[in-house]
């Protein structure tokens, strides 16, 4: 696959490490979350046939983690964004 890195353009997916669903970014608030919230966060994943937001770590590149929206049925990638927005300028 080719992932269009927001900063570096098209890059081979072999340079990336798959880190799982982008839902991992929504870590429960330790102050307020219930045991169920933690259980859901740690163990439950959506498994959509269609668009899926997921994290790809550009380990062989600039070490950015990207949020990639990929259709699991076609591998079509419709959106790529930096998980951590860059500073004022890149």
């Amino acid at each position: 696959m080719i992932i269009h890195h927001p900063l570096l353009g098209p890059r081979d997916s072999a340079e990336f490490v798959y880190l799982g669903a982008a839902a991992l970014m929504d870590r429960p608030d330790p102050e307020t979350a219930s045991a169920d919230d933690w259980h859901d966060y740690a163990y439950l994943r959506d498994n959509p046939a269609g668009p899926h937001r997921e994290l790809w770590f550009h380990e062989g590149g600039d070490r950015s983690i990207l949020i990639v929206t990929r259709d699991t049925t076609t591998h079509e990638i419709t959106d790529v964004a930096l998980a951590r927005p860059a500073g004022a300028q890149i």
């Binding site: 880190l19 970014m25 870590r27 994290l55 770590f57 380990e59 983690i65 998980a83 951590r84 927005p85």
Partner: peptide, 13 residues
């Protein structure tokens, strides 16, 4: 290192 980057970029941006 991967885990630390995940925490840094995704949980503590």
């Amino acid at each position: 290192y991967q885990h630390m980057e995940f925490v840094r970029q995704c949980l503590m941006p």
